[in-house]
Nucleic acid binder design. Structure first.
Lengths: 148, 148
DNA sequence: TTCTTAAAAGATAATAGTTATTATTTATTA
DNA sequence: TAATAAATAATAACTATTATCTTTTAAGAA
């Protein structure tokens, strides 16, 4: 996991370079995404910030997440059930392991992937630009709680 | 690719076993999905069947795709842009290569994946149930047409 | 073949997540 | 401190999918 403070500084610098305003709401959203351990959803970011900003609007969260996505500073993970989760800490494609019971998302180390990309490019003739690798299953905690 | 006729027969048999009616619309949807070379969307299935069934309803396509999905006879591929495509020919998880220009979807042969699943299970403690592997890029045809 | 009926189709309303719009507020710079 | 371009807040609009309800039909029985 990248240092959250470094990621936060990088994102703020991106805003500054593009002469975008550093509003408190915007910075707070950036901070949550830079931490981003739990891969939060827009709704979760919104709920968390309502405590600090009483007038916080859901649209503001959507707007800024969209913006950061367009900068390549946030990775969007959309799931078959329609839900979207975000990673501002590691905004480049990487594999995820998702618990279908509790929704937890874990980043496994899987170095073998680079080789796969080359293999696929060779086999299909595609120029591969990005990828998405997700494993779905049940985390250790949920496996244990099921046994009770 | 599995034999489309076999896949069609399997799906029809599934309907029969569950005492579900074999309506012409239902059978036509099943046939398109059993072929399913191009990984059609609901909209594409609907457009194609309107030619044969003048009163065809979009809801009927959704209803039957949902049904087949619940039987495990169709694999749903949902994409970040919100689009959904379906594979009734190989309804089990397998990797895809998607062209971001023309939307073509190709199934590469990638035997290395089984090992990855075991690796991930070992590393994370998850019980892995399914997965999703997508490579995004530009197909050979679109690479060539760009050069013009 | 005709009759019965449970299920499916068709048409459309409802839903949910996201994006667009507009008036108000605010960060930034001079 | 004032000017203003941009962001926020509130809400309307949009889109893909699902639910509802009425009409039609497949399938088994008489």
């Amino acid at each position: 996991m990248a240092n959250p403070q470094d990621r936060y500084a990088i994102i703020v610098e991106k805003f500054r370079k593009k002469s975008l305003k550093l509003t408190p709401q915007r910075l707070a959203i950036a901070k949550i995404l830079a931490l981003s351990k739990g891969h939060p959803s827009v709704e979760e970011i919104f709920e968390q910030l309502k405590k600090t900003f009483s007038t916080m609007s859901l649209a503001t969260v959507y707007r800024n997440v969209l913006l950061l996505k367009s900068f390549g500073e946030v990775l969007e993970l959309s799931f078959p059930d329609g839900s979207n989760r975000y990673d501002g800490n590691r905004p480049y494609p990487h594999p995820h392991v998702i618990c279908i019971k509790c929704g937890a998302i874990v980043d496994p180390a899987l170095d073998a992937l680079k080789d796969l990309t080359h293999l696929v490019a060779k086999e299909t003739g595609f120029q591969i630009l990005t990828h998405r690798f997700d494993f779905f299953g049940i985390c250790r905690r949920c496996q244990n709680s099921d046994k009770k």
